[in-house]
Structure formats: structure tokens, C-alpha cells
Design a binder for these strands. Structure first.
Lengths: 108, 108
DNA sequence: ATCGTCCATCGTCGATCAACGATATGAGGG
DNA sequence: CCCTCATATCGTTGATCGACGATGGACGAT
């Protein structure tokens, strides 16, 4: 009813914005790096200063299980990927998704 | 103790990374847009399709109080700023912080 | 002065996050 | 075959988010 009693404001968007798929993808990627520990993990991986989980744990003041959880979140967002290397797991950046994030932010 | 029993892995970072201020700033800005509704609000403000709170409410399928809360989060992150215009409040992007975010992401 | 409008804030509720220790899994070495 | 190391996962706990309705305060108009 509020819409009827006022002159239209959003002329270019006649109806309410639906759940914008782009906005959701954007939010999902931004969410992945919306935590200081995950920012540092991503930076470590990009700089190739570390790639194995244990190395990352040594670089951060967090427990191994916590780091593993952050890695899981990053993996689910698609920003990183991990491949098994014997008993270890080597994580690396997913360049495609990283570029996607950069593109979305740059277009803001 | 874990550090003592293994050979050092992060040679370029002799000690554990402290709370990196840049990482925290980064996470804070990313957090601001880590929600679909906030992404849409930021886009509306950038495109100048809306700037008054009531207009934004009309554009989103959310209650006024919820939108106001998202606006508060965005304001606290520094990404937007609001100035009182009579009984209304006009929100607009803070270009400086937006550029800061873009810069941080681009340098990843 | 008393409305009505616009917005911010409060209080609440359920859901989710972030951290940890403890435990399970899986690949190799003895 | 057992043992160890490197990770992943489970279960718990406290803190925070995200949504809403209700209330309060500021301002302009009647």
C-alpha cells in the first residue's frame, strides 16, 4: 500500500528486485574473504608462500581444525581447490573464480 | 610445541602472522558486501536509482527495519554515508572507501 | 499544537559462525 | 600388519547475524 500513495521512485525497476542471482554469487564470493584469517590464507596461496594445510597452520595463530574449516569454506566458495599429494593436501587458488571476484568488484 | 618438532615451512614469515591490520580492513569491507541485500543496495546507490531509505525499501522485498539495519552496517563499514535531508535521509556511496575496496581486491 | 511521514533503534527469535579438542580417515614407512 | 603423520570431520559452546514488529524521535504541513 505504501507504493500506491507515493509517486514511483524506482522508475527503472517497476517491481521489487527479485533475488538477483548475480548479487547472490557476488555475496557468496565476498563472504569467502569476509574474515581476516581467510584473507590471509588466500594471500598465502596467491604468493605461494604456503600451500599445504600444515604450513598454513604454522603461519596462523589458529588451531589446525579451525584452519581446516576455513579451507573448507574457501573451497566451497570455489576460490581455492585442493588436490591430494600423498598424505598431504596441496591447496591452490582457483584463478577463474578469483578473476570472477575481481571482475564483479571492478564493475561496481 | 608443534612448531618445534617440524622444520620451518614459512621461511619468509619467521613467526606466525599477527592480526594483519590490512587483512582486517579487507575483511571488514568484504563483509559489508557479503550479503545479497547489501550488494543490491550498493548497486542502487552507485547507479543513483535510489538514495532515500524509503525508496530502497520499495526496491527490496524486506521490511523497513531490516533495510535500515543493512544501511547501518554499510555505514559502519564506511562504504556509504548518509546525510539528513529534512525528514528524509539521503544515502550515497563513499567513493574513497569504494576505491579502497576495489584496490584491495585488484591487488590480490 | 497536533498530526503524519520518515527513519533509527530496541527486543526477540531462530539460524549460523568461529573457535576448540577429540576423534576418525587415509597414505606410507618400518 | 601396525604405527605415524597429515587432514578431515564431529560435537560443543559462546557469539553474532538476519529477520521482523513495535516503539521512539525528528521534521514539515495543516
Amino acid at each position: 500500500m505504501a507504493k500506491k500513495s507515493r509517486t514511483k521512485s524506482c522508475d527503472s525497476t517497476p517491481v521489487k528486485l527479485k533475488a538477483d542471482p548475480t548479487a547472490e554469487e557476488f555475496a557468496r564470493l565476498a563472504w569467502a574473504i569476509a574474515h581476516p584469517a581467510r584473507v590471509q590464507i588466500v594471500r598465502l596461496l596467491i604468493g605461494r608462500e604456503a600451500c599445504v594445510c600444515g604450513e598454513i597452520v604454522d603461519c596462523l595463530p589458529l588451531a589446525q581444525s579451525t584452519v581446516s574449516q576455513h579451507l573448507k569454506i574457501l573451497k566451497e566458495s570455489g576460490l581455492i581447490q585442493g588436490e591430494v599429494d600423498g598424505p598431504k593436501v596441496c591447496y591452490c587458488i582457483n584463478p577463474k573464480q578469483l578473476e570472477r571476484l575481481k571482475s564483479l568488484v571492478a564493475k561496481l
